[in-house]
Design a protein around this nucleic acid. Sequence first.
DNA 1: TAGATTGTTAATCGATTAACAATC
DNA 2: TAGATTGTTAATCGATTAACAATC
Lengths: 209, 209
Amino acid sequence: MKKYISQATVDRLPLYFRTLQLAEEEGQMIISSEELGRQLDFTPEQVRKDLTSFGQFGRKGIGYIVAELKNHIGKILGLESKRRLAIVGVGHLGAALANYENFDSLGFETVAIFDVDERSVGYEINNIKIYDFKKMDSVVKHKRIDIGVIAVPEVHAQDAADALVEAGIKGIWNFAPVKLSVPESVELVNEDLTIGLSTLGYRLTQKEL
Amino acid sequence: MKKYISQATVDRLPLYFRTLQLAEEEGQMIISSEELGRQLDFTPEQVRKDLTSFGQFGRKGIGYIVAELKNHIGKILGLESKRRLAIVGVGHLGAALANYENFDSLGFETVAIFDVDERSVGYEINNIKIYDFKKMDSVVKHKRIDIGVIAVPEVHAQDAADALVEAGIKGIWNFAPVKLSVPESVELVNEDLTIGLSTLGYRLTQKEL
DNA sequence: TAGATTGTTAATCGATTAACAATC
DNA sequence: TAGATTGTTAATCGATTAACAATC
């Protein structure tokens, strides 16, 4: 019997993980749901509810053992085995993602970049080699790449997705603001940067009324 | 009497807007909640509910007039008056954001970039001038900047936020994965790129069990 | 008129918060 | 033992979906 875990809870896991990591670095041994919540602006009840949906990690009357809880959450997020990423598109965003350091501690490693522009093929960004888009199939298979990151212009996003699917990728992280069509079997997460900014604009406008 | 609009609804507004914009470009005059929903993977009921929370924009038996609805949503999002952005930090992410074209049609304009590294000061990225971080106060006031975008390393994010608040910014769009402290009066939206990627990793891990 | 589609109320579903027994 | 804090059940809150009257 597998309990259903809400998306909201899953979204909070990496935040717990990072907070625990910081606490561990500072030598903290024990943390309460209260303190964990305070650092992230969640209620302690929320924290306990989230954590217990995966098991009982705490000690009543004491709290949670930082290292233990961190490892548990790491396991839930699948951190023991590194996921290999490929970035498609070597524009400004692709380059920024290739240089982003925070993915590492969450179990991700960027191992290839693809681009259609032959002039950039062969070069490296942050020590990651740029391959010809046409070679995707063999590179993905050879390097056992799990996840494709779409950082190409909107008009080419579906083509990029199709090529990634064809090459046998398991998940797609899409930065193009379009609804992609992919098979059910491929996990798709959309990262639409315009939503957050629009929200900000909306709120400022409301205030000014 | 002001009706409360849920965050979920606000998040969908820019998506409606973009879809309507595309429909308009293709010369479509009328669109139904059904079709609008189909293009974004929402139910027609959801679309109608969202739209009616701001007023009655449709014609019963007909649908919505594309241009009219687009303009309405644009007004709700505050698009008539352009918001001026400043990016703090000219790392890879800052540079990518300075070059991002999609903000324009949502009513945003990047007018300044700030950095502490004096070697980059005076240069331009995508025709946007880079200013010394220390000059923030006068530049923000002079250029009447509304929103600050934090694209600096985690350790400097709070400093950047403090400086922006001090300079009189109204909203902050934060890309650093830290919880910032800002006054109640300043709107804060966090854009944590690690959440989406973690979700993808989590789902793949679950599948493999 | 018949068919289509909105706007709105009611029903359902799901997530958060509150309360409290269990127990360290 | 008294105090603290978890894990869990119940209550509340909010968002989505269903149903349908209004009307073009």
